Simulated scan of single mutants.
Amino acid sequence: MASAPKPLTGTKVLVMLVAFFGVVIGVNVTMAKLAIATLPGTDVDSPYAAGLSYDREISAARDQTARKWQVNAHIERRTDGGATLQVEARDASGLPISGLKFGGRLERPTDKRADLSVELTEAGIGIYRGNAASVAPGQWDLVIESEARGQRAFLSRNRVILN
């Protein structure tokens, strides 16, 4: 003979409700902590200051266009996990531009904490090279900047994929 089923009491219902909502709240707290811990941050530190400098950015872009420089960048992944960046700069007439200060950055589109700076030095007339160590595979924004006489002379941002 089978034993009679145990009756559903108020205590059992209370325990089931507390367990259910405890699991739901626990999952929500865990997900919130993970979301906050992995937040990459903002694109600009101060949107107000960026807005004030907007006219200067437009002026610098017009000056860059007027110079008609031809700047070509090539990034190559090395077998040790790093990358080599080479920039070739020529003026409007096609002559190499020497004596500039170039800098490069590899920026992760999804996580600013993974950004890498690449210091470029002049390796030849109009050719600038630099190395980045431990570059993870995937999509990057390659940002190239140049200064001449303390002023920004060139700025370029391109999406690259490194395998």
Results as ranks from 00 to 15, higher is better:
L8C: 02
K112S: 13
I25R: 00
A37P: 03
A89G: 06
A92R: 14
R56S: 12
T42A: 13
L85E: 01
A114R: 11
R78L: 14
Y54H: 14
W69P: 03
R67E: 14
E88V: 15
A133M: 07
V44G: 08
E119M: 09
Y128H: 04
V24W: 02
L17F: 10
E107M: 14
T65C: 01
R56G: 15
A66N: 12
L34H: 08
R113F: 06
K112I: 11
T9E: 02
L39F: 10
D111N: 15
V87G: 06
P40G: 01
A114F: 12
K68Q: 15
D55W: 09
D80S: 06
N72V: 15
A123R: 03
G103Y: 08
D45M: 12
V23E: 00
R105K: 15
R105T: 10
D43M: 13
R90Q: 12
V87F: 05
R90N: 09
M16Q: 05
L17R: 01
L52S: 06
Y128A: 04
V27A: 10
G138W: 02
R129S: 13
N131Q: 14
I144R: 10
D111C: 06
G51S: 11
A49N: 09
L8Y: 04
L106F: 12
Y48E: 13
D91H: 07
P109E: 00
P109F: 00
Y54P: 03
K33G: 08
I127D: 04
Q86P: 03
T30H: 08
A83C: 11
I144Y: 09
M16L: 12
R108L: 09
D63E: 14
E88T: 15
T30S: 10
A133Y: 02
A83P: 12
G81K: 03
R113A: 12
S134I: 09
F20L: 15
A32L: 10
A60F: 07
L39A: 09
G82A: 03
R105C: 04
T79Q: 12
P40F: 01
A66G: 04
E88C: 00
E88Y: 00
W69K: 00
I75H: 06
I125H: 11
K6G: 00
I75E: 07
I25H: 00
A61K: 15
A73S: 15
T42F: 11
D80N: 15
V143M: 10
S53F: 08
I58T: 11
G94C: 10
T110E: 10
E122Q: 14
P109A: 00
R108T: 12
V44C: 09
R129M: 10
V24M: 08
V71R: 07
R108A: 15
S93H: 10
I36C: 01
K112W: 04
